[in-house]
Design a protein around this nucleic acid. Structure first.
Lengths: 225, 225
DNA sequence: CGATTACTTGAATATCCTCAAGGAGAGTGG
DNA sequence: CCACTCTCCTTGAGGATATTCAAGTAATCG
């Protein structure tokens, strides 16, 4: 559940390369903060993060922002959209993204049940992730939310030991339905409780010292196993 | 978006009857409050509400409850689960439910791209619904949440004019990430503002007097169109 | 009809947010 | 390479929104 945002399996685009004569793939680079696609735009492509990190969000008219997901290296995104994008996607840091034309994907999927099943699986996995987030946003306290977030990032992190967060406290806050100050206070509390520590000089390199306690604080006892 | 919880199209089980020689369909009755399936149980069936109403929920260890969705007459549910159910489902009132064996559905879908597409569409629609709920739970105020809920029920309601809510204030609260008192206060406020009124003697028969204002309060201006 | 459950409203409290200030880190140009 | 600037993060104090606790009334169900 934590291994990958939305549980999307990076293998899809690998599989597609087998049918590469019929699909169009291209790579793009985006600078820090650049928009990859906008909400309500037609969804012509699906995307895979090659390097960097991406956030998706929705805005309310008065500027309140809700981040839908973070996508890290290897993650596929934009698939969960139907005909039009339902989020805006932005590069968090300098990011390379691979684009696959939706139409060519659909064409291949028509004749390949395995790919069709992969698409359905990925969509179902997104649903699982998002359903857990509904419990978090509807019922968890600020400390539980921050603990759950750090746990998620911990398990998604490829580097063992130190975890490198590409996103700001504000991004985390908008992901968890909190303010950046509340996120900062929760992290400070976890630091005082020796559940995590900062590595080096920056506040974005974090070492989880006690995963089990963190999982208990997140109200996700199964994650401690 | 409001016409159906999760946008699931009730047509699936109708389509299936065309292949009824290969699928097993049966009907069950559940009393008020009865459990239809439990979280983490294997998902053997998908379900359609024939009559009545169903709620799905998750519980935290200390009893906090988050309702995932309400399913009304015609709605299909349990499809969004993978191999195991990720919610507990209960009848809100006396309810008749039609069950379809998942395996027989899968078998039919293997050879029928139309049904496969219907399944994918329904899953994608669930995702859309759930993503809008994330914005609601993460960033909306109590009044905005209650307004959005009433608007959703208004558009899903089959009866024109008076809307009959099968669920309690507590159910609504657990759906919106609030307490029942806060929901009650918000409804009272909308009543004082002449945006809705109660019909008859009960507090569950509601008439929306001003849909546009309600949509504005819900921060969903497009719903007013 | 009686008992139970559901809903509303008020008062006090808690959690999280807002406003504010200070300091540390990262990036830029001299 | 260092100074400068901008952004980010932390922490504190005060305030707002929603919750908790409580009581009373109304509606539903057997």
């Amino acid at each position: 559940m934590y291994s990958n945002a939305g549980g999307q399996k990076p293998r899809l685009i690998g599989e597609l390369s087998a049918a590469s004569d019929r699909i169009s793939v291209s790579d793009f680079r985006y600078g820090r903060g650049a928009e990859i696609f906008g909400e309500a735009e037609p969804a012509e492509y699906i995307y895979q993060v090659i390097e960097g990190a991406v956030r998706t969000h929705k805005l309310l008219p008065d500027g309140r922002r809700q981040i839908g997901a973070f996508h890290l290296s290897g993650d596929i995104f934009g698939l969960e959209n139907g005909a039009t994008h339902r989020f805006t996607a932005e590069a968090i840091v300098a990011t390379m993204v691979r684009l696959v034309k939706r139409k060519s994907l659909d064409n291949v999927a028509q004749n390949d049940p395995a790919i069709f099943n992969t698409i359905l699986d990925m969509t179902t996995s997104s649903l699982v992730h998002v359903q857990n987030r509904i419990l978090l946003l509807g019922r968890k306290t600020s400390l539980e939310r921050v603990a759950a977030f750090l746990l998620e990032m911990h398990f998604r992190s490829t580097t063992a030991g130190v975890m490198h967060l590409p996103m700001s406290r504000r991004d985390i806050a908008d992901y968890l339905g909190l303010t950046l100050e509340t996120v900062s206070r929760a992290i400070s509390e976890l630091r005082r409780g020796l559940i995590l520590k900062f590595e080096g000089t920056t506040q974005r390199h974090i070492v989880i010292l006690n995963v089990q306690t963190l999982a208990k604080l997140a109200d996700e006892p199964d994650a401690a196993a």
